[in-house]
Computed example of a mutant assay.
Amino acid sequence: MIPGYHTLLYATDLSDNSAHAFRHAVSLARRYDAVIHILHVMPAMDPAMESYVAAVMGEEVFVKLEQTNRETLIETIRQRLEKFAADELQDHPEDLQRIAGIEVHYGRPAATILSVADRLDPDLIICGTHGKGLVSHTFLGSVAEKVLRKSTRPILVVPIK
C-alpha cells in the first residue's frame, strides 16, 4: 500500500535556514491535503550550570525567575513561529489553514520531538539538519540523527544549506 500523509510534524530549531525544511513540509501538505504541526524545543540548561546558578542566586529565587522567564520565552517563540509561517506563506495565505498547531516545549530536543510525535501521531516527521564537522558530529550527534535512530515513524531530513 502506498502511504499517504494527512498529518505532518515539522520540527524546527529556528535557525536562519530552517525555512528550507518548512517549504518541504508545505509542499507535501499541499500534495496530500495534509495539516502541519509546528514544533520548537528549547534545549534544557545543563544540570551542572543550573545547580551553579541556583546556588548563586538562591534556589527559591532561581526557580521563580526561571518559571517566569520560561513562560515569557515560550510565548515569544510561539509568536515568532506564527510570524515565520505567515511570512513564508505570504504568497499563498490559504496555506496558513494547513497549520494545525504550534507548540513550544522545554527539554531535550530529540526526546521531546519523539514524545510529541507519539501524542500527535503524524504520518511523517520533517526536520532539517546542519552540516557540522566530524568531531562535533561524532561526540554530540545531531537532533535529526537521534530522532532517526529512535523513531518508529517515517522521517524526512532536509539538509539545510
Rank of each mutant, 00 (worst) to 15 (best):
P3F: 12
G4W: 11
H6W: 10
Y10F: 15
D13L: 04
S15Q: 04
D16V: 08
D16G: 11
N17L: 07
S18V: 05
R23D: 14
H24E: 10
A25K: 01
A34R: 05
A34V: 07
V35I: 12
H37F: 12
L39V: 06
P43C: 04
D46L: 08
D46I: 05
A48E: 08
E50C: 02
S51V: 03
V53C: 02
A55P: 09
A55D: 14
A55N: 15
V56M: 11
G58M: 03
G58A: 03
E60R: 15
E66H: 14
Q67A: 09
R70Y: 10
I74N: 02
I74C: 01
E75N: 13
R78N: 05
Q79Y: 10
F84K: 04
A86I: 01
D87N: 00
L89S: 01
D91S: 02
E94P: 00
E94F: 00
D95W: 01
R98C: 02
I102G: 04
I102F: 04
P109E: 05
P109S: 06
P109D: 06
A111C: 09
A111N: 14
V116C: 02
D118S: 15
D118K: 15
D123N: 13
I126T: 09
G128M: 08
G128I: 02
G133P: 11
G133D: 14
G133N: 15
V135Y: 13
H137I: 10
F139S: 09
L140V: 09
G141R: 02
S142M: 11
K150N: 15
V157F: 12
P159A: 07
I160Y: 07
I160L: 15
I160C: 12
